[in-house]
Simulated scan of single mutants.
Amino acid sequence: MNKKKTKESISEEYYPISMEILQSFPKYRPKVDLYIFKEDIARLYPIAKKDVRLSNEQLEEIYQACKDEILFVSRSDQHIYVDLLSKQAELVLFNSNLLESEIVQILMQALEMRLGLLLEQPLPAYYEPLYKDVMVFCEYIWKDTKRINAFVPKIETKEFKVAAHGVTTLIIGCWLYLKTRNDDTNRKNFERLALGLILHNIGLCKVPAHIVYKDAPLNKEETEKYQAHVRQGAALLNKFGLSHASIIQTVVEHHERSDGSGYPAHLTGSKISDNGCISIVANAFADLIVSKNGVPRVTTLEATRQLVKDASLPVALTGVLLKAYADRYFPDV
Rank of each mutant, 00 (worst) to 15 (best):
34 L>I: 11
104 V>H: 08
236 L>D: 04
283 N>I: 01
256 E>C: 02
239 K>I: 06
88 Q>W: 03
306 Q>A: 01
146 K>Y: 08
34 L>A: 05
95 N>K: 02
123 L>W: 06
162 V>L: 10
63 Y>V: 08
120 E>C: 05
63 Y>M: 14
8 E>W: 03
211 I>T: 08
249 Q>W: 06
64 Q>W: 12
152 V>K: 03
109 Q>K: 14
233 G>T: 06
183 D>N: 04
278 I>Q: 04
167 V>R: 00
192 R>V: 00
5 K>A: 14
32 V>I: 15
289 I>P: 03
149 N>Q: 06
274 D>M: 11
135 M>T: 07
151 F>C: 08
13 E>Q: 15
91 L>G: 04
333 V>N: 15
133 D>V: 03
310 D>T: 02
326 A>E: 14
182 N>G: 14
217 P>E: 09
107 L>K: 03
134 V>W: 04
216 A>I: 03
270 S>N: 13
50 K>S: 14
233 G>Q: 09
297 R>E: 15
186 N>H: 13
98 L>E: 01
196 G>F: 07
132 K>C: 08
150 A>L: 04
161 K>T: 06
195 L>M: 15
42 A>L: 15
217 P>W: 07
249 Q>H: 14
82 V>N: 07
267 L>K: 14
314 P>Y: 03
266 H>M: 12
332 D>Y: 02
161 K>P: 00
262 G>N: 12
271 K>S: 11
85 L>Q: 00
149 N>H: 06
333 V>E: 12
60 E>H: 11
240 F>P: 02
333 V>G: 13
315 V>I: 04
